[in-house]
Simulated assay, not measured.
Amino acid sequence: MLVLLIVLLVLWLILTVVGFAIKGLIWLAIIGLILFLGTAAIGVIRRRAVRR
């Protein structure tokens, strides 16, 4: 499960960088950033749940 989260985070980060690099794809950067933050939040929540 942790590997899947890391892969998703890297994928969203790549989308964000590509979106910021190409001015016409700024929407891609915004979507990538939102997905990155969402995936990171889900990962943190699940890790805290597993510790308990």
Rank of each mutant, 00 (worst) to 15 (best):
G24W: 04
L4G: 05
A40T: 08
R52N: 12
G24R: 13
I31Y: 05
K23P: 07
I42M: 09
G24Y: 06
R47F: 12
V50H: 04
V10T: 14
L9C: 11
V18C: 05
L2K: 08
V44W: 12
A49Y: 06
L4A: 14
W27K: 07
L37H: 00
L8D: 04
G19H: 02
L37M: 12
L15I: 01
L5S: 10
L35C: 13
L9P: 00
L15K: 08
V10Y: 04
M1R: 06
V7Y: 07
I14W: 07
I26P: 00
R46T: 11
F20H: 05
G43K: 01
I30K: 06
R48W: 08
A29Q: 03
V44T: 10
A29K: 08
I6H: 04
I22V: 15
A49K: 14
L25T: 10
W12Y: 15
W12F: 15
G19E: 04
V10Q: 04
I45P: 00
A49S: 10
R48P: 00
G24T: 05
I6N: 07
G38H: 02
L4D: 09
V17L: 15
A40C: 03
A40D: 02
M1Y: 05
I26A: 14
R52K: 13
G19M: 06
L35F: 14
V18M: 13
L13Y: 13
V18W: 03
L5N: 08
V10C: 08
L25S: 08
R51W: 03
L35K: 06
V18T: 09
L4S: 10
T39G: 02
G24C: 01
V17N: 01
A49G: 00
L9V: 13
R52I: 11
V17G: 02
R52T: 11
W12T: 10
F20Q: 09
M1C: 03
V44R: 03
M1D: 08
G38N: 11
T39K: 00
A21Y: 11
A41G: 04
L25A: 14
G24S: 12
G43I: 02
L5A: 11
W27A: 12
V18F: 13
L11H: 06
T16S: 10
R51V: 12
V50C: 00
R52M: 07
L15M: 14
T39R: 00
T16D: 02
V17H: 01
R46M: 12
L35R: 04
L37A: 15
W27Y: 10
I42E: 12
L33S: 14
I22K: 13
F36K: 05
I30R: 08
L33M: 14
R52H: 07
I22D: 11
G32W: 09
I45V: 15
V10S: 11
